[in-house]
Computed example of a mutant assay.
Amino acid sequence: MSTYISKRLIYMLIILLAASLLVFSLYALTPGDFISGNLKLSPERKAELREIYGLNQPLLERYFIWMKNALHGDFGYSLAQQTPVLTLFNQYIWNSFLLAIVSTFMTWLIAVIIGVNAAYKQYSWFDTLVMVGTFAAMSIPSFFIGLFLIKVLAVDLKWLPPGGMLATGSNATGLAYLREVVHHMTLPVIVMTLLGLGSLTRYFRSNMIDVIKQDYIRTARAKGLTERKVLFTHALRNALLPAITLVGFELPALFGGSLIIEKIFNWPGIGQLYMQSFGLRDYPLLVGFTMLIAVLTVIGTLLSDILYHIADPRVKL
């Protein structure tokens, strides 16, 4: 195990190095930047700022300077926000993580329960409703679901706030602050759960249909085990094995998948900050965010391989 992890860490470093060069080059070669697009600055001031921030230097020289600073924990300075990139990440990333981790947990929990029951009751009315619902959830765009639920639950019924993380002018602390955050995050969590529920439910359903036809499932039933124990103890564990490969995509999806949702619900997360920075061409922040997604991707892939081996020791690393 230790030898495998050591080799994978070396591969991860090589992949991240190549990814950093690619990401930095793509943003650096994109026409325009925050300084050149700022109409309030005079040509002389623009030239001065480009000289100060090293934007006139050759591409490779700028990359090596950025990489040297990144290895020391400095991912650059956001020109639009006038704040170091890591400081902005620390301010916004935890809000995105809170929103994403709750929705991911709810998605997997509901998908497992519905997928197992749909597979057990294959071709029943429940299975038909599940399949129709999953295809509908996969087909409807995220912005439409978000705006529709805002119209129904926030505007018409007034059950939930339409956006934000706290009420305007709120000074709540302690449990009152926690209740307010939960109240505001309920609507975006519902939308993110619905968006991920369709494909994951179909995945668990198809896996369970294959597993419950195996001989060892018939043997477990012949031993007199309850159907609940057969499904959720014997069959589900093996049906989860292919789903473990999805873990590698869950970490980057925690932040990359909520970009539009955070914008719709005005949630103060890293996704909304990224969208704002993209419009302003704030490339230092964009490079830092893209590299964060790359790091989460390689870490998630490593975790999925290790978890697969733990779940099924027969699989060699």
Rank of each mutant, 00 (worst) to 15 (best):
Y120K: 05
I212V: 11
Q214P: 05
L147Q: 10
T128V: 08
S124V: 04
L26V: 13
F143K: 07
V130L: 00
P188G: 11
S199K: 04
M208F: 01
V211Y: 02
L175N: 10
L98T: 13
L259R: 03
I15Q: 01
H309F: 11
L259H: 02
T297D: 04
D74F: 12
Q91T: 14
T128L: 13
R314K: 12
S124K: 00
I110N: 04
M185D: 09
T233E: 09
I15G: 04
Q214D: 12
A100G: 15
P252T: 10
V116W: 00
L39F: 13
M208V: 05
L13I: 15
Y308L: 15
A80V: 00
D210Q: 05
Y177V: 04
F278A: 15
I140L: 15
F144L: 15
Y283P: 06
F34C: 05
G271K: 08
P141T: 14
H309S: 13
G196L: 11
F105A: 12
G76W: 12
S199P: 02
R218M: 11
A243I: 07
I310A: 03
I145D: 10
R202E: 07
T134I: 10
T193Q: 08
G164W: 08
V130W: 01
P242V: 00
F249P: 02
D215R: 09
I14N: 10
M1N: 01
V315G: 07
K151M: 14
A167K: 08
S124N: 09
F126H: 01
L194W: 01
N69K: 15
S2V: 14
D74V: 15
A100I: 08
L241D: 12
D312T: 00
S96E: 07
Q272D: 10
L71W: 10
T87F: 15
G196V: 13
V247C: 02
W125T: 06
L175R: 08
L79A: 09
L292K: 03
P141H: 14
H234T: 04
P268T: 11
G288L: 09
L71A: 10
Y308P: 02
H309C: 15
M12R: 03
N117L: 14
A294G: 05
H184Q: 04
L296Q: 08
I93R: 00
L26Y: 11
G248E: 03
S124L: 09
D215H: 06
Y77L: 10
T134P: 03
A311N: 06
Y4P: 03
Q122D: 03
K68Q: 11
P188W: 01
G164F: 10
N171M: 15
A28G: 00
D210V: 01
L149Q: 10
E180C: 05
H72I: 06
L49Q: 04
A311G: 05
F64P: 06
R50F: 07
S206V: 14
L307E: 08
Y4H: 07
P252V: 04
V230D: 02
S139H: 00
N117T: 00
E44A: 14
G196N: 08
K158Q: 15
F289N: 06
Q272H: 04
P43S: 00
F105Y: 07
L194C: 06
W108Y: 13
V191C: 07
Y120H: 03
G163I: 06
P242T: 06
V287T: 14
G257C: 12
S2N: 04
I150D: 07
